[in-house]
Design a protein around this nucleic acid. Sequence first.
RNA 1: GUGGGUGUAGCUCAGUCGGUUAGAGCGCCGCUCUGUGGCAGCGGAGGUCGCGGGUUCAAAUCCCGUCUCCUACCCCA
Length: 440
Amino acid sequence: MKYQTIKGTFDRLPADAAKWRLIEETARVVLERFGAGEIHTPIFEDVGVFSKAAGDSSDIVRKEMYAFTDRGGRNLCLRPEATAGMVRAYLEHGFSSKPTPVKFWTFEPMFRGEKPQKGRERQFHQVGYEILGLSDPLADAEIIDAGVQLLSQLGIEEYVIHLGSVGDPEDRAAYNQYLRDTLSPAFARLSAESKERLELNPMRILDSKIESDQALLKELAVKPMLEFLGSEARDHFEAVQKCLTAWEIPFVVDSSIVRGLDYYRRTAFEFIHNSPALAGCSTILAGGRYDGLAEILGGQHTPGVGWGCGAERLILAIEAEKIDVPELEKPLVYVIPLDEESILYAHNVAREARRVAQSLAAYKVKGMGKALSDAEKFGARFAVIIGSNERETSILNIRELATREQFTVSLEEFGEWLFEQDFGSGLEANIRMLEAQLEA
RNA sequence: GUGGGUGUAGCUCAGUCGGUUAGAGCGCCGCUCUGUGGCAGCGGAGGUCGCGGGUUCAAAUCCCGUCUCCUACCCCA
């Protein structure tokens, strides 16, 4: 084959559909319970939406954006993340005149030109949830709660919430200055990567994986960001914690939380999965507050908090925790014609059955054994056998594949019979259950 | 972007010391097969041995390059 998917992209095949649908439908049900409206922004936008938002020093902008120029000479890029586009949409459509807050959820592909590896693709997919217009710490807590609810409804349990605060811009500036002042004298002892970080983003040094860096930090007794929070950011941080505690949502305060995107303010959090299967990509959901973003995009001040949740990593977690994924609907009936004259008749029966449930009919006559075997391979529950007898008498011969029990139903009662069947095993039923569960 | 590993049929994999027309199992299609069978037997389709160079009388096999995927970094969901 000459063509194949390009590096870091993959085809989502029918065999994977159940997991993806579980994620999307669970997100829909859970997040709409929080009042979030479904939003889909374009897959590509003016490059400025993302580059201004993320900041020129971020790795995403520096080396990971799929930027291109279209025929009109516009500088565009494939979106590397969801938030900036949603804030742009909020501003563009005047959502500030809607009752506050405005909540958005989405499930969309994102694009980053990274080297692919486990839990990291060039086209990857995120569930996103944002609360816009509210600076209240209650919104931060609620957004974290929404993440908890989403994972809980998916059955994912083996994770820890890491909560931190990156403070307000002036706090961060002060802290970065402190880091430079503290680490510069020891510049020669930093790793090559950290030497670069000291210029660009000193906070990155804190979560360096290089032992010598960590040893140096310890030796110099480098203070955490949290000690540099201004009084407002500190009050905000404490209020968020108070809410989470009241809601019995466990979390650990993690002062090393750093953000790759410049627009974050105050609250930052990551849901980190414990499974070794997610080693190196254990952050399954991450987000924070970005009160300055709207202004960066040229709009009026609009506080916001939100998170993104990586679907590919969610799938790894679902697999690691061996979570039962509800199967998609399979055919209720597979209609078998026994002679040439019955083929069209068989398809007529299948059409009738499709008014109620998924149904198939064979396109050619085969031996009965093969035909029943086909029915089973297609996952059908019942085989409906059509031959001259059935056509003449208008009585359908129905065989339940699993039990091998056979019985007859007259053609006129067939519709009624279809409705009596149990469809309880499919995902749709599962979602109905989920909704009922949330109702309670 | 850097390092390591990898690549033969749709899938899982054989393929000797470099040797002539590259194999198996499963799957797919067909026949035996005319309504109680899901079996079994037989047959068929499907391959630029990732791609491109090189060495050689001869390359899936040896050498170089390149790409993919996996993986560790950087970084991130």
